[in-house]
């Protein structure tokens, strides 16, 4: 299935080849956000805000075809 992923701040380079942090990710049916994080190789020691279709969700949430997933890391610079 395909989901639309938007990565923010320091994570956007993970999808650098796509449109600056935005990309369609083809992931196995029945995958969770956790699986997506694994697939994108986002480091596990960063706390994340996960938004699915505009609602905050947990990393255990299951994904479905066409979901819009936004992943926000904290930004520490000043």
């Amino acid at each position: 299935m395909e989901v639309e992923v938007r990565l923010f701040a320091t994570l956007r380079s993970i999808l650098a080849k796509e449109d600056r942090g935005v990309g369609i990710v083809d992931i196995e049916e029945g995958s969770s956000v956790d699986d997506l994080i694994e697939y994108l190789e986002i480091p596990r020691d960063i706390p994340l805000i996960i938004m699915i279709n505009g609602q905050r969700k947990s990393e255990e949430s299951l994904l479905k075809e066409g979901d819009r997933v936004g992943i926000f890391p904290p930004v520490g610079g000043g």
Binding site: P43, I46, P74, G76, G77, G78
Partner: peptide, 24 residues
């Protein structure tokens, strides 16, 4: 929003990653 800080070094700082001057 973020229950605990990221592990030191897992998220880059401005010193390491840079920041465009107007951002601040």
């Amino acid at each position: 929003m973020f229950p605990q800080p990221p592990k030191p070094g897992s998220v880059p700082s401005c010193k390491e990653a840079g920041v465009i001057g107007v951002m601040g």
